[in-house]
């Protein structure tokens, strides 16, 4: 099986504090991979390392077989990896339509063009409309993103992440703070939109994790202690002790 993401012996220190130690993680192409672990285990740091938000102190990170450790976030994005953020991270003063359109521009090859009218690019317009339809925000297209409801902002966050057509999608707690019905809706959305792509997801809601993931990795104190199918993880004594045990009432 070919791998989408491979982390080998990755270490990250902030000063003398070692946040991530000897992290090894493999995500296969087309896989839905969930990373779980208690608070402060380093899940978001792992996301930041892969997406180039922070650079590893040592170790190797490969995307589709190419080394990406040390590259800038936009370089990694251009190689086909796109991520969302745990705290909503949209373009607040721009409309929903413009938010999605900005996320489409690079992927459609318009780059830094200052000689084209952005409103008359049919490909951009079509893809933006498609994404808006996908995330159910067509009705809200002219509302500034900062005025959307929380759940709508989370959906826009996912929309921006997938709009560029990246083949590796990373979602950081996409359902955090959502009600049960909103969560169900979001999971269905994620399942549909990441069809045929690789998905890496950090999530606290265990029903989401076990419902969505093909494979699960458990991160504790900056170290992957187990990686396997949902059944394997459920039966793993180390995991039970470190993490799941606390959750089961």
């Amino acid at each position: 099986m070919t791998t989408a993401i491979e982390m080998r012996a990755v270490e990250k220190k902030f000063g003398n504090v070692r946040i991530i130690q000897d992290l090894n993680l493999t995500v296969g192409k087309g896989e839905r991979h969930a990373i779980i672990g208690p608070n402060g285990a380093g899940k978001s740091t792992t996301f930041n390392l892969i997406s180039g938000h922070i650079t590893p102190t040592s170790g190797e990170i490969n995307l589709n077989g190419d080394p990406i450790a040390g590259l800038r976030p936009f370089e990694i994005n251009r190689r086909g990896l796109s991520r969302s953020f745990q705290v909503t991270n949209v373009f607040a003063k721009m409309t929903v339509w413009e938010n999605i359109r900005c996320a489409v521009l690079w992927a459609t090859g318009h780059r830094y063009a200052f000689w084209k009218n952005v409103d008359s690019l049919p490909e951009v317009r079509r893809r933006t409309a498609e994404i808006l339809e996908d995330i159910h925000l067509t009705e809200r297209r002219d509302v500034p993103a900062g005025l959307l409801t929380y759940a709508e902002q989370r959906e826009l966050e996912i929309g921006i992440t997938i709009a560029g057509g990246a083949n590796v999608i990373m979602l950081d707690e996409p359902t955090a703070g959502m009600s049960n019905t909103e969560t169900e809706r979001a999971v269905a959305l994620i399942r549909r939109l990441t069809e045929g792509r690789t998905l890496v997801i950090v999530e606290h809601d265990m029903s989401v994790v076990f419902g969505l993931a093909d494979r699960i990795s458990v991160l504790v104190y900056g170290n992957i202690i187990a990686s396997g199918t949902p059944e394997e993880i459920r039966g793993n004594p180390k995991v039970k002790e470190a993490y799941l045990g606390e959750e089961e009432h």
Binding site: N89, V90, F91, M94, C102, A103, Y112, I160, A163
Partner: peptide
């Protein structure tokens, strides 16, 4: 405008 609103996020949609 996107850079004005959120320079961090711009990096994750392919722009420097």
């Amino acid at each position: 405008n996107a850079v004005r609103d959120n320079p961090e996020r711009v990096q994750f949609i392919g722009y420097d």
